[in-house]
């Protein structure tokens, strides 16, 4: 029942499965069910202090802990990468406190916790993706009062958001919002998709996977059930467009994926590589190469 956590120099400490106590899990589970029943609506929940600072994914971690089962296979990504600090720390947290299997392969995971990306590989029915959300309220920078934003959602009064996007056009000639691009869910609630690049917004629409969002500091949970309509806000004469990249990934030659810019030296040298490390390494293993691929691959020694 309990996953023992042992360190050689310390007395054995045991945590409940997946760290959270059962009452907390029930409270979060009830919030998740209501969130699924009202797609895009932010359900308040009694967010707990977690053994990591706010801003490091405490909301996502609590949602994952509440839904995680012993048979689940967990993948954790941070900006598309499986091996950055945040991803490694959270993956190890659940390996230690829940003893669940983990993977970096998108297809093999049953639960994917993510910070600011949706994997390139298409998600499948039965998978759940958990987003870490810093500011869940899309209207917060336009209206600081929670009482007011709550009323605006109740009235479905989203004129403020359209004005904000229009001001982008007036100032820059196009909608300059490139991440956390607001979406409308099922024609009702305007929702912050978390700070994913707008490149990923179309993947939320009609996704076969269940999408859950957790904001720990702001104490909100929201959800998009599978096969739910998610529309990025735009104007008839300024339709929503995703970023396009001039060159393919320098390591795997992929096009049509989201690329990270990597600075190589102080003379302007740079390369663009897949932000999704699993997608990139899978393609490289399949033999795809890019302009900066290593000239040869040493055989793996297992």
């Amino acid at each position: 029942m309990n996953a023992p956590v042992t360190a050689s120099s310390m007395p054995a400490i045991t945590y409940n499965f997946a760290y959270l106590d059962e009452q907390t899990k029930r409270m979060i589970r009830r919030a998740i069910l209501k969130a699924i029943a009202i797609p895009g609506y932010q359900v308040p929940f009694a967010s707990r202090e977690m053994p990591m600072p706010y801003g490091w994914g405490t909301g996502g971690v609590q949602v994952t802990a509440a839904i995680l089962g012993a048979d689940d296979v967990l993948k954790v990504i941070d900006q598309g990468s499986d091996d950055t600090t945040n991803a490694v720390a959270i993956r190890t947290f659940f390996e230690t406190t829940a003893g669940v299997a983990t993977t970096t392969r998108t297809q093999d995971a049953t639960i994917i916790q993510t910070r600011h990306r949706i994997p390139e590989a298409e998600l499948k029915a039965g998978q759940t993706i958990v987003f870490q959300v810093p500011i869940p309220e899309p209207l917060r920078y336009l209206e600081p009062r929670e009482t007011e934003t709550r009323r605006l959602h109740a009235l479905a009064d989203y004129g403020l958001m359209q004005v904000k996007l229009y001001e982008d056009i007036a100032r820059h000639g196009h909608i300059a919002t490139t991440y956390a691009y607001p979406v409308k869910v099922e024609g009702r609630y305007v929702m912050d998709p978390s700070p994913i690049p707008k490149f990923d917004n179309p993947k939320m629409n009609d996704s076969p996977a269940l999408q859950l969002f957790g904001a720990g500091r702001e104490k909100r949970i929201y959800a998009i059930p599978p096969h739910t309509q998610v529309v990025s806000l735009d104007f008839e004469d300024h339709p929503f467009k995703v970023q396009a990249f001039k060159e393919p990934c320098a390591l795997c030659g992929a096009t049509g994926v989201y690329l990270d810019e990597v600075i190589l030296d102080d003379k302007g040298g740079r390369m663009f590589v897949c932000s999704d490390t699993d997608h990139c390494s899978t393609r490289q293993a399949e033999g795809h190469t890019g302009t900066m691929s290593a000239p040869y691959q040493e055989a793996a020694h297992d």
């Binding site: 029942m1 309990n2 409940n16 499965f17 059962e22 899990k25 029930r26 589970r29 998740i32 069910l33 699924i36 029943a37 509440a66 839904i67 995680l68 089962g69 012993a70 269940l210 959800a223 059930p225 599978p226």
Partner: peptide, 20 residues
């Protein structure tokens, strides 16, 4: 019989049912 995992399995079924 197994409060932690039985509760999780029951919830997982309900969550799946509500999302589909």
């Amino acid at each position: 019989a197994d409060p932690v995992h039985d509760a999780q399995r029951s919830f997982a079924a309900v969550m799946r049912a509500m999302s589909e």
